[in-house]
Amino acid sequence: MPEALRTTARRDEDVHFERVAGPITYRARTDKPVQYVTVANGQGAVLGCLWANDEDDAAGWTVRTAGGDEAFNRGALYVSRLRDAKARGISPTAALAELLRYSDPANPSHVVPGSLTGAPSLAALRERLAGD
Rank of each mutant, 00 (worst) to 15 (best):
T93C: 14
G42D: 02
V39I: 14
A28S: 13
V37D: 08
V112T: 15
G75V: 12
R64D: 08
D56N: 05
E127A: 02
S121Q: 09
G48H: 01
G89D: 09
N53G: 00
Q35D: 12
Y36Q: 15
A106K: 11
S109D: 14
R128H: 14
I24V: 06
F72Q: 07
L125C: 11
A45R: 04
D54S: 03
S91F: 00
A123K: 01
L77V: 11
R6F: 03
D57P: 06
V79G: 02
P23K: 11
T8D: 08
D12Q: 10
A40C: 09
P120E: 15
E127Y: 12
E13M: 15
A95R: 09
G118M: 13
A94E: 13
A66L: 08
N107W: 04
A45I: 08
N73R: 12
L99V: 01
G114A: 12
L125G: 02
S103C: 01
V79K: 14
L116S: 14
I24R: 09
T30F: 04
A21Q: 12
A76R: 06
T65I: 05
I24Q: 15
E70K: 04
Y36E: 09
L82Q: 03
T93D: 03
G22E: 12
R128C: 00
P113G: 13
Y36K: 14
Q35R: 14
Y78T: 00
G75E: 11
F17S: 07
T62N: 13
D84M: 11
G114C: 10
T38A: 08
A130E: 02
D12W: 15
T8C: 01
R126V: 00
A21R: 14
S80C: 08
